[in-house]
Nucleic acid binder design. Structure first.
Lengths: 127, 127
DNA sequence: TAATTGTACTATCTATAATAGTACAATGTC
DNA sequence: GACATTGTACTATTATAGATAGTACAATTA
């Protein structure tokens, strides 16, 4: 369910954040479903509890999950997700960086389009 | 000519690498044209010479430039550029990461396609 | 000869991520 | 009520990557 790649360039906490976002948005995790506790998840993926807590704090701040002292952490309704314009622009900048690198590697516009269409088509769940 | 953003998430040396690659591939820097020396460029963009040298080493390793002790560093012919399959896969992974983040933000397949087409169309020079 | 240039080092500083450990309030369970 | 669980907030420490600082030397050019 929650997979971490310790050799990844992305930090562990960022991987948890993106991982959970994907499960929430795709509906694998359902509204009000209980998330593993900070300590549980930390043990499951063998990282420090503080790392999980950091990810949960970010996820709560963006409305993907909500927490209740003593009770636990739960999945928010998708209507609660808050996306800022900066988030979109950051994603755009990441994609632009990747496209730039393909250009530097000598790919043509059409080859780039094909590669990206491949990536898009890999995901069957989509709004 | 060589622009560095010190607040960027990309390291300075990586920014130099990508910057030069772009200028070489687009033809702004012409074959056998002399590059600024390590020390010159370091002063121009106010970074440490070691940082520039690191970037130059990477660029030479990938065939974008070549160096000659005592003479300087020069732009390679574009036929000398070596692109590994891993480079393409890394670019693909970066793009996938950006597309994933757009999905997490709730964008539809079509909105994502439009945003990417925008990015692609921003670049007029292209093979 | 003197200046420039690429190159190779070592040492140090800095920022970020992750780990380790402690503590406490709120909650649920027995 | 007692106790375990949970979220939360700290501090301190370690690990790593990137950048800086400084030195040195061989090859080349002027």
């Amino acid at each position: 369910m929650f997979l971490i790649d310790f050799k990844n360039r992305k930090s562990i906490s960022d991987q948890i954040v993106d991982n959970v976002k994907g499960l929430v948005v795709s509906g694998v995790l359902r509204t009000d479903e209980k998330m593993p506790s900070v300590r549980e998840l930390a043990e499951e993926i063998t990282v420090n509890p503080n790392t999980v807590q950091k990810a949960y704090r970010i996820l709560e701040g963006q409305g993907y999950i909500y927490s209740s002292q003593g009770r636990g952490t739960f999945v928010s309704d998708r209507s609660q997700i808050r996306v800022s314009k900066e988030d979109i622009l950051e994603s755009r900048a990441i994609i632009k960086d990747g496209i730039d690198k393909l250009y530097y590697a000598g790919l043509s516009r059409e080859e780039t389009r094909r590669l990206i269409e491949d990536v898009i088509d890999e995901r069957e769940e989509w709004t």
